[in-house]
Design a protein around this nucleic acid. Structure first.
Length: 216
DNA sequence: TCGAAGATTGTCT
DNA sequence: GACAATCTTCGAG
């Protein structure tokens, strides 16, 4: 069976849009519950979507790794917005990363979406990421998924309940399939176990490794 | 105004 | 595994 056929055979489900109340909870809980949800982006070129298989929690001004640790600036302002809105930022001069803002207004926490399993719009994703040779390489990183879905500055601060960028309920990932590990690519608070991923999924940016614990 | 850092990725060895 | 690419953001002076 080829990769496209394998994807189709699993038939993930994209349900209703996740309500604001979903995001208005503890950031760690939102990060875990976003596994299995579907992120969809509509552009002039078409719509592409993927099932979330990896997330990281950033816990606000008291989390040294969170952008909000420096306080409210022009860049971090969307983090202080309503739960369920998007925080999209530019990094390393060439990549975008997308977060879902969580908790109550005024508490600048968010969940970074690190990897997706492609769901719809595979041809569109491939045209945007011609270097990706396998379907598993299309969205297995925060910069890659933004490229594949066409996410950029125009989505920063937008609601994830309506408009071009939306998050939909999907098939809940069983606790036994969820691994928790330290966050990736950071230097401050790097040991905090705030990364959630679907154990054994080929589309995560990095496998869980031996130090990972079950669910949480 | 300037310099350094950065939640990444792709290429090369 | 090492390293370059590339540019926004923000603190320091």
């Amino acid at each position: 069976m080829n990769e496209d056929a394998a994807l189709a055979a699993r038939r993930p489900r994209a349900g209703p849009v996740l309500p604001r109340e979903f995001f208005d909870r503890e950031t760690e809980i939102v990060a875990r519950d976003l596994l299995g949800a579907v992120l969809s982006c509509r552009t002039a070129d078409g719509t592409a979507s993927g099932v979330i298989v990896e997330t990281e929690a950033y816990l606000g001004e008291h989390d040294p790794a969170c952008h909000a640790a420096v306080g409210r600036t022009r860049r971090t302002a969307p983090l202080y917005g309503v739960p369920g809105s998007a925080y999209v930022y530019f990094i390393y001069g060439m990549y975008w990363c997308v977060n879902a803002v969580t908790r109550a207004e005024g508490l600048p926490s968010a969940v970074l979406i690190r990897a997706l399993e492609p769901f719809t719009g595979l041809d569109l994703m491939r045209s945007r990421r011609p270097r990706a040779r396998r379907a598993a390489d299309l969205c297995n990183g925060p910069g890659k998924l933004c490229l594949a879905l066409g996410i950029g500055a125009e989505h920063n601060g937008l609601s994830l309940q309506r408009g071009a960028l939306t998050l939909h309920a999907g098939d809940r990932v069983p606790d036994g399939d969820v691994a928790v590990t330290p966050r990736v690519g950071i230097t401050r608070a790097a040991e905090w176990p705030l990364r959630w991923l679907v154990r054994g999924n080929l589309h995560v940016s990095r496998p869980a490794g031996r130090g990972a614990t079950d669910r949480s």
